[in-house]
């Protein structure tokens, strides 16, 4: 692996494909929870400069919910799912059949609802990754925070920052239309050694 370049085109394609499968699984899980059909768009994958990460979700000061899991065993690192606050409100309303005060903070029940959603969505992605690579991936309990996108994304950006200046972000859009969007973005941040392990197990060095 070249030091200046985290991933080459082929590796990028593979990670995007894992993103596709993972989002598909996530949408299925979500559809079961919501008991309704959930459409998914083809996920967009982009290799971004870490400076561009917050722009991708609407700017540094956009309020987002971030759900973070740490990974251990064969793959070490972090996985993050980020959704805009509007998408989080939409999801809570659909799942809990309630109106959410869109100017207030979320109560404990609503927070734990979001945390569970994040857990399911990231779990779906990770299980695809684990199936494809045949690597054992152990995820921590999900940690959640609601804050400015720049601040939330600083956590994975710092991890990426140790490897280089780029990060792979996969945007997964679920839901019927823009007004009801319940989509989000995910970031997989393996450590350097785990990154190599993933690529090796997929047969691309």
């Amino acid at each position: 692996m070249a030091e200046n370049q985290i991933i080459n085109e082929m590796q990028f394609d593979v990670l995007r494909e894992i993103g596709n499968i993972g989002s598909g699984n996530a949408a299925t899980a979500l559809a079961k929870m919501l008991n309704q059909k959930v459409d998914i768009k083809v996920p967009k994958a982009a290799l971004l400069d870490f400076n561009e990460l917050p722009q991708a979700v609407g700017g540094e000061e956009t309020i987002v919910v971030g759900i973070l899991l740490t990974l251990s065993e064969d793959v070490e690192g972090m996985m993050m799912f980020i959704m805009k606050i509007e998408a989080a409100y939409n999801l809570i309303e659909k799942l809990m059949f309630m109106q959410v005060d869109r100017n207030g903070s979320l109560d404990e029940m609503q927070m734990s609802c979001l945390q569970e959603i994040g857990n399911i969505i990231t779990g779906a992605y990770l299980s695809s990754l684990s199936d494809l690579t045949r690597l054992t991936i152990q995820a921590s309990v999900p940690y959640m925070a609601m804050d400015m996108a720049g601040a939330i994304l600083s956590v994975p950006a710092i991890e990426f920052g140790k490897l280089g200046d780029k990060a792979l972000m996969i945007e997964a859009e679920f839901g019927e239309d823009a007004a009801n969007e319940i989509g989000g973005y995910f970031l997989l941040i393996p450590t350097m050694a785990s990154y190599d392990a993933i690529m090796a197990s997929l047969g691309i060095g």
Binding site: F50, N51, P54, G59, E60, E61, D147, M148, A149, G150, A151, I152, L153, S154, V155, A157, I158, G161, D165
Partner: peptide, 23 residues
């Protein structure tokens, strides 16, 4: 300025960075 950037500034300008987290 963004993550991992630096710059200098003189009055009447001001300098900012948005959404500092663990940085």
């Amino acid at each position: 300025i963004g993550m991992a950037e630096l710059n200098v500034c003189l009055p009447p300008d001001a300098i900012t960075t948005l959404g500092l987290g663990s940085c």
